[in-house]
Amino acid sequence: MTNKERYKRAFSALQSSGPLNLEVEEMAKLKKKHKTNIAVAAAIICAVIIGGSGTAYAADLGGIREKISIWLYGNETEVEVTEHQEDGGYTFSYEHDGETVVMGGGGVSLDDNGNETWLSAEEVLAEMNDSANIEEDKNGRVWVYYYDQQIDITDLFNEENICRITLMHEGLPAYLEITRKGDGSYPFSQTDHLSDEEKELYSDVTTE
């Protein structure tokens, strides 16, 4: 019998019992708790880079359009947003490195009762605004962009090709763990909560 099977059998006692003490009730509530904690903020469907100005492309889409400024790659960037009225999603377009990036996105959040609510364009873009960007330049240097900060992390990867850094913005920390893959991609995770033991693994590189 595996540990999982053993564990499930032991805790199956929760299903068929009478009044429980408070701590055990908390364990039984864990299954419901996750529904109130999950917020799917931004699902970027695809990004398409097209040459030249994206204005003509955006003009063809129809729908409600507006412009929102967010931090992208260390620069305050104007993003043109077109709302798709039929499905609650959006098309975003912005200029980066002389090219136009067009992408679709949207998302929902779940309230305490598990009801879905479509996110506004500001809420979807807020996730992008608060998220760091990682990019390797043509000289092979790896950069982290976070709001108006640009940090060269090329030499901060350990022997496992992982880089862990702490960034600060307006007094609040963001902890990034970046993995250097052999194919030139740099997947990363970002959180603002770490235990004290975990924090020790992260280098403070903020320039703010």
Partner: peptide
């Protein structure tokens, strides 16, 4: 108030708690 199949189950439960 809980019913366990074996004493080991109860031990595991109590240890986790």
């Amino acid at each position: 108030s809980l019913t366990f199949e074996t004493p080991e189950d109860e031990h595991l439960f109590e240890t986790v708690m």
